[in-house]
Design a protein around this nucleic acid. Structure first.
Lengths: 339, 339
DNA sequence: CTGAAAGCGCTTACAG
DNA sequence: CTGAAAGCGCTTACAG
């Protein structure tokens, strides 16, 4: 009978009907206490577990959430963005807390991912983490919404679609403000500051605001595009260094970019923070171990993960679409201050 | 009809029976080419997806794998062992490649986790990553096996149960050999070298073998217990430093321990690698960014993840239980050599 | 408080 | 090549 007992087996043994077994196992108040006890006892002995597929088919809900992580196009394809990875933990934990299973999937920018999960009833809703180009992504999101799929996305609010995000502008402002307070005025921004990458764009807005407030001009030449990888950050920084823009600090739009930037600076024979101060964004695990330890803007992945799950669950229950902004926090380490 | 089309809807529209629709969608050679085309066309228009629960209920298989990660008891409970996290990627990818979904779950050392997944038909098999105490874990493993659950475990082979593991003894040998070649002879081992932690125990065996081969004695006082966390590694190292054992190198049983060890050494005002050389184990992402970059024994998580999935799938197909040993590789960085 | 029955949406012998 | 039918194992009105 190894792991194969059904509610009918229990019914036979308990001398009740299969419906009563089902009710008892679900703690229905309709069932007599003693009957319930007896049924549960037998179920335990048989090592019985409710068949997930049968019950899901019947109730039309799977009690499962799907987490889709969109890989950034990295050169090293096995490297998943560590920031997302750290969010994984809290999302998994939050799902479990609400008695939901979590289906995990890493996506390439394939065409029909959006339909796969909820339509096949694999999941009651999906959590979206990361994406390639925001402009390409938007129509897919819209389609999800039109299909009535339950989902929540990590990213800046757009079109009133459900999303959780940190306040990137505030983060950018804090980072820049910090560098200004360390007496820098020519601060480079490394990251794609365009609608194709709204996160970075917002960080750039915060950067610009801080500069303006301090009476400094915004110089487009101090901005260089980069996607969120070490390699890209390295190349962008090299380009900037060669352009001889006479800057003394870098605000990297992500920690991964900052890692590349630091590598470039070291290779150029310059020193951090004496020649260049650097601030990153995310506070990935690596940041505090770096040489020098990286000043950065922390996004609280723990809170974020929980918020994602709870918003999605709300959404599934039919509550209003939500947009939540989390507060980022400046973490000062030695890449931006002289010790 | 939003995401709610069934095979019957398609049957009506195509003017065939529901059985034919089902066959056509599964590319049955029995069905007429044109009929198949037509059915698929309509399915696409309706955005139809086969209902996972209905098909799984019928076929009695879920095409899903469950990955259970057992959290080490860390002080910082949100921190999942980065080594496991990096294995996640390849496991997910390998599952997808074989058309299996992946269910993710972080486990505390709860009592009845072992029954939950396969018995409820949620998964066709499970992958086990990490555990607390190996001695406590063994009976659960045995029960899994007796229940006929399909599973594979990351860890040293034991009792002929299916497992994938790196050759820890060889890794320990390589690490120690390397330190010996750098002219160290009094080398401390930090990690729990007992049956409660077979991985570390095997690494210790390799360490001992290398020492003996080089004609050096094994000194029990140079070994201190530690679980695989930064904090524990820090405390163990502090203890060792105070015991004044006159050692010049440390082989830490994991990178996390090495991180703690380095912290302890720095706090004691000593310098790496001039006062102490350090070698870790795992090659987690952080290792190469540390100050100094950490010499370590790399376990190839990419190969490991794939091997886990493929062994499990083999197991599900009824093939013999397998045990695979992967080769670890010494990565020399500046924590163990003077530059 | 309990039971008999319907039905969730598939897959697959069985019959033609 | 196609269709009618059974059945996977549940949950839940419906009737008592």
């Amino acid at each position: 009978m190894k792991g194969k007992a059904t509610s009918i087996d229990i019914a036979h043994l308990a001398g009740v009907s299969q419906s009563t077994v089902s009710r008892a196992l679900r703690n229905s108040p309709l069932v007599n206490k003693e009957t319930t006890e007896k049924v549960k006892q037998i179920a335990k002995e048989l090592n019985y577990k409710v068949d997930k597929h049968a019950s899901s088919l019947r109730t039309q809900q799977s009690n499962t959430l799907a987490l889709l992580i969109f890989a950034d196009p990295t050169s090293d394809n096995s490297l998943i963005n560590p920031f997302f990875l750290s969010m994984l933990g809290s999302i998994t934990q939050a799902s479990a807390k609400h008695d939901y299973d979590l289906l995990l999937s890493f996506q390439q920018s394939s065409d029909d991912w959006h339909a796969d999960f909820e339509d096949s009833q694999k999941a009651d809703g999906i959590i979206l983490l990361g994406y390639g180009d925001a402009v390409d992504f938007a129509p897919k999101l819209k389609q999800l919404d039109e299909q009535g799929t339950h989902y929540v996305r990590w990213g800046p609010p757009a079109n009133n679609l459900p999303s959780i995000c940190c306040d990137n502008k505030s983060g950018g402002y804090q980072a820049t403000q910090h560098l200004l307070s360390e007496n820098h005025s020519r601060i480079a921004f490394i990251g794609d500051a365009s609608v194709h990458c709204p996160e970075f764009f917002e960080r750039y807005q915060g950067y610009a605001e801080a500069l303006i407030k301090a009476g400094h001009p915004i110089e487009p030449k101090l901005q260089t595009d980069s996607i969120s990888t070490e390699q890209s950050g390295y190349e962008a920084t090299m380009k900037l260094l060669k352009a001889d823009q006479n800057f003394t600090a870098i605000f990297a739009a992500s920690d991964l970019i900052a890692i590349g930037a630091i590598k470039a600076i070291k290779e150029s024979g310059k020193h951090i923070p004496t020649d260049f101060s650097i601030v990153g964004f995310d506070d990935i695990q690596i940041a505090r171990f770096m040489n020098p330890p990286l000043t950065t803007i922390r996004q609280d992945t723990s809170t974020a993960g929980e918020a994602l799950v709870e918003t999605l669950l709300d959404n599934i229950k039919g509550n209003l679409q939500q947009q939540i902004l989390l507060n980022p926090e400046l973490i000062v380490r030695n890449s931006s201050r002289t010790v």
